[in-house]
Design a protein around this nucleic acid. Structure first.
Lengths: 212, 212
DNA sequence: TTCAAATACCGGAAATTTCCGGGTATCCAA
DNA sequence: TTGGATACCCGGAAATTTCCGGTATTTGAA
């Protein structure tokens, strides 16, 4: 009996390619492909034979990897989820693990390691990539410290901040005083632990709060 | 006789996956894989049977797609190059086409279209994805206006600029005077047509000069 | 050899960003 | 009803960024 894998990634070529790769592993088959989280949930709902393991891209349109993992955990608890991402920033890793993923893999993983990871997850329920293992304790310790909550206004401000506009111009676009947007700036600096507007914008991009 | 394909992409999993996908196309085989441009050139040099077509990721470390395409065109003119990218901004497209690529494909292309494109390129020497066709005339008209050349020092400065460092700190890291880095800043502002450091960094990211 | 481009440097001033302190009003949940 | 989070506002000063004007040396290609 094959280990059935589900794949969700918004990049079509990567999705189909990875599917071809995994199908070529003996003992594995791909039973569901989706271009976003919502599509994956639909396929799981309608599937006769659900995948044992679903690989989820972290950043997808319509429904991102985190929310999808959460929904899968609730609706199909027998299906194991694995995060697949290009980034390995602490926040993403934590968010996915907290959403119930039993592994966090990087997209530049070696195919052999991927196969090994999937085998491990199928049999023992989890797999820790080397880089994760090292940090896991530190991450879980500082857990509640991190994950600062970004308000809607701050998010809106971030959009304007990632441009050539001065704060004065941003204030007028948001119909606020300069001092108020200065407040948002200050709040985000401390939440992101940065010291400049450039750092703030880059951190926002890294946290997927901004698309560029 | 199979159509031989070469692949260069820094993302290991994508590289191997795409290789699996293309190998599964009847009449195709993958005869060279590389994680960057330099590696690909070495493989081409040593290969007994060179690929007919090489797919190049636009943004790679060590040697990017553009330079690789150029070098392939010079050293192995019989090998056709194809750009493979996530982005479709005018500059990237132009740069790759000018470097001698006979097609510019997006990474979320449908596998069937990829196969069709490769077939076309093999037999007729070129393939235009829909989106390119529309813009090609406009692009070629405005050609020389665009494409500001970024020097190595400017590129290095950009790396430092995409951080919390002040220009003073950047200057000391680069062993230059503050005024000199101010010169780089000024040059890049005008090349990118922006008015602030944030704009500069974001534009650099858009042009694949910086990774985030 | 001559010219352009890249590199390196300088001063001064205006604009913007950053940091510090303070404050009020509302709303919601404990 | 008290506390906490959010949204909003203010002044002042220091640091940084931006813009303007220059000059000199090196280097490689025409």
């Amino acid at each position: 009996m094959d280990i059935r894998i589900g794949l969700a990634d918004d990049q079509q070529l990567f999705l189909r390619s990875l599917s071809a790769l995994i199908s070529s592993f003996p003992g594995f088959s791909v039973s569901a492909e989706a271009l976003n989280g919502e599509e994956m949930l639909l396929k799981l709902r309608d599937a006769e034979e659900r995948p044992h393991i679903v690989l989820l891209d972290v950043s997808m349109p319509v429904m991102d990897g985190c929310m999808t993992a959460e929904r899968i955990r609730i609706s199909f608890p027998e299906v194991k989820t694995v995060a697949l991402s290009m980034k390995q920033d602490d926040d993403s890793v934590l968010k996915m693990l907290r959403a119930g993923c039993c592994a966090y893999l990087l997209k530049d993983i070696d195919p052999h390691e991927l196969k090994w990871a999937l085998t491990q997850i199928y049999s023992s329920g989890y797999y820790n990539a080397g880089f994760i293992k090292v940090n896991l304790n530190r991450l879980l310790l500082h857990d509640q410290h991190k994950q600062p909550v970004i308000t809607d206004r701050e998010r809106e401000f971030l959009k304007y901040a990632s441009s050539d506009l001065t704060y004065k111009q941003i204030a007028s676009k948001m119909f606020l005083s300069e001092k108020t947007v200065d407040g948002y700036r200050e709040a985000l600096f401390s939440k992101f632990n940065v010291k400049s507007r450039v750092g703030m914008v880059l951190e926002a991009v890294r946290r997927d709060l901004l698309r560029i």
